[in-house]
């Protein structure tokens, strides 16, 4: 049976992505699953240990439970904070005022600064003895805490600092363009009907941008689970104790500092499953609140 030219061409266009996915994503995912059943220190041949890595991970005294709890708290609150902040700044940029271009630049500027530089600046700013944050507090007679070394505060400081990451800046740009697409007539009609700003926001803006809101929610959740490492590792290294030890960081430490590739791969498999479940759940729930037609 001869293939028609028209039926082959689309697949040829897709081929580079399929090859790239198979080599750089599919292959490593399968490799990680296989390695999760082994004990491997990278330098000597791996040995098959069956489910032992998973059993250790889920055992009663395992640190995995603490790390999972920190990961989920960080995920929920970092997504809420980054979503709210990026939507808030995008709304500000859509106000009818002069100089929104300048504001846009300032809001987005932290996103283009390399994260590693930002984290060292944050370390300095939040230093208990020499940091500017505690210096400002001392001017009003307050003694500042040890922000990044206090286990009750560290996770919250790190979560709030997410607003300076590239991802939040990108979310803001996406929200900004979505807000510009909301038909102005809807607002005019609502104003005639006497709607106030709050009503307009919840009854018009949110439903109108709900597909974009959903997109940012899903990608923000995935980002929080998988790439929080880049912020947390240089900022707190997961400490004090395990106060900011999220799973992506623990995977790195086990794989490349303790050379426990098998255990780290088992953690990666679980993180993959959690991320997939979260995304699936969000897709399921989205049917109730995402409106694809204006």
């Amino acid at each position: 049976m001869a293939f028609k030219r028209e039926s082959i061409v689309p697949y040829l266009y897709l081929l580079p992505w399929i090859i790239g996915f198979t080599l750089f994503m599919g292959g490593p995912i399968i490799a990680a699953i296989v390695i999760s059943f082994t004990k491997w220190d990278l330098l000597t041949p791996p040995t098959w240990v069956g489910l032992s890595n998973f059993i250790n991970m889920f055992s009663a005294g395992s640190e995995f439970w603490v790390i999972l709890k920190v990961t989920l708290i960080f995920m929920v609150f970092s997504v809420i904070i980054t979503m709210c902040w990026s939507l808030f700044t995008a709304l500000l940029l859509n106000q009818r005022v002069r100089g929104t271009g300048i504001f846009s630049f300032f809001y987005f500027a932290p996103a283009v600064v390399p994260l590693i530089s930002l984290t060292f600046v944050f370390q300095l700013m939040f230093n208990k003895e020499l940091g500017i944050v505690n210096y400002v507090l001392s001017l009003v007679g307050m003694e500042g805490p040890n922000w990044l070394m206090d286990s009750r505060l560290a996770l919250w400081v790190v979560t709030v600092l997410c607003i300076y990451t590239y991802f939040t800046g990108q979310m803001m740009l996406i929200f900004d363009s979505a807000l510009k697409e909301v038909p102005k007539e809807l607002y005019e009609a609502a104003e005639i009907d006497g709607a106030n700003a709050v009503n307009k926001f919840f009854k018009i803006t949110i439903p109108a941008i709900s597909p974009i809101f959903f997109f940012n929610l899903v990608t923000g959740t995935i980002n929080s689970l998988n790439t929080s490492f880049a912020l947390i590792y240089p900022l707190t290294a997961g400490g004090p104790g395990q106060a900011t030890q999220v799973m992506s960081l623990d995977i790195y430490v086990n794989a490349f500092k303790n050379f426990r590739m098998g255990y780290a791969s088992a953690e990666a498999v679980i993180l993959f499953a959690i991320t997939a479940m979260m995304s699936l759940l969000q897709f399921r729930l989205s049917k109730k609140w995402v409106h694809y037609e204006a």
């Binding site: 040890n146 070394m149 206090d150 286990s151 290294a237 997961g238 400490g239 004090p240 104790g241 395990q242 106060a243 430490v253 086990n254 490349f256 500092k257 303790n258 050379f259």
Partner: peptide
């Protein structure tokens, strides 16, 4: 010792000095 072991233990030592453990 593996550097990762030190990395983990020292984080806990700091937490102990801060009264968190």
């Amino acid at each position: 010792l593996p550097s990762g072991l030190t990395f983990d233990i020292v984080k806990d030592f700091n937490a102990a000095i801060l009264g968190q453990i």
